[in-house]
Design a protein around this nucleic acid. Structure first.
Length: 278
DNA sequence: CGCCAGGATTCCT
DNA sequence: AGGAATCATGGC
């Protein structure tokens, strides 16, 4: 089975990376994580400095987990006070993965005002209903995440079986838009953060929070600082944000305070939210 | 059962 | 620009 040995200087925690809530399709059984990335079922585990995996290429693992990213440099740049310093210690090795853009966009549209177990279920239902089974030997069947075309072409775009609630028409509309806009990835990629953000927010069901998540998790715009209810509470308790501050104010203050890798700070705070709010 | 959730939209002032 | 009401569903 292929194996990647991480260099001494490269900090990485597979458990924190896949378990912090940035992705919704990975599951851990025993020591092994199993997940679907595009058309591949990947199994992977970590033993110290080694990553052992099957189902995909070495290049895919490097790219998906951002193993060539200098995490130490990023963490140094956001390490500005005792609070974030403690979080960096607690969650050391957490990396932002490079998510496929469409899956990320669709997933975070589904994620609005839902909790993580519920989100996982919605995405699982979407994949089983509209995705394609991936041949992967014996055991349970895994499904690819449906493409925008898959969803747009599903006759009346009937997503009602997937527990999406009021998000269903949003996802349906955005799937159609994306299906007829094949250049959207390249376009967003080429735009600066704030322009790209306005572009994404033209899709139905995409407000500032979803846009920030997509820019951060799929387009590597690391200054994005998504604010959900947990981050809002953390910013209130630990960073003196007033109680009735709106999204833009909290997000901007996070960006200005933590700098060009504010999104990393956000994800570390989110990953350690239980301790920070206990 | 009631409260909450990686919020967005619409309508209002 | 900044509120408030509304939205559908499942987890806990």
């Amino acid at each position: 089975m292929p194996r990647i040995t991480l260099p001494e200087s490269s900090v990485f925690s597979l458990d924190l990376t896949l378990g912090c809530g940035q992705v919704f399709r990975w599951e851990k059984t025993g020591a092994w994580w199993t997940g679907v990335v595009e058309k591949e079922v990947i199994r992977i585990r970590q033993k110290g400095r080694s990553l052992i995996f099957e189902g995909t290429s070495r290049e895919r693992i490097h790219d998906y987990f951002g193993l060539d990213t200098d995490l130490g440099f990023i963490l140094d740049s956001i390490d500005r006070d005792p609070v974030i310093h403690g979080v960096i210690t607690e969650c050391n090795g957490l990396r932002l993965v490079n998510q496929p853009p469409w899956e990320c966009l669709a997933s975070y549209i589904c994620a609005t005002y839902a909790n993580i177990p519920g989100i996982r279920k919605k995405i699982s239902l979407l994949s089983e209903t509209f995705g394609e089974p991936i041949p992967a030997g014996p055991g349970p069947v895994f499904y690819s995440f449906p493409s925008a075309d898959d969803l747009a072409e599903s006759a009346p775009c009937d997503l009602s079986r997937c527990s999406l609630g009021y998000r269903a028409p949003y996802l349906c509309s955005t799937a159609r838009e994306i299906a007829s806009d094949p250049g959207w990835e390249e376009r967003i990629n080429a735009l600066d953060y704030d322009v790209a953000r306005r572009d994404l927010m033209q899709f139905k069901g995409v407000g500032p929070k979803v846009a920030d998540c997509v820019l951060l998790f799929a387009f590597r715009k690391y200054e994005a600082f998504p604010v959900d209810v947990w981050i809002a509470r953390i910013m209130q308790r630990h960073y003196g944000a007033a109680e009735n501050r709106g999204y833009e104010q909290i997000s901007r203050s996070g960006r200005e305070y933590f700098g060009p890798y504010a999104g990393y700070a956000q994800e570390y705070l989110y990953g350690d939210r239980e301790r920070l709010l206990s």
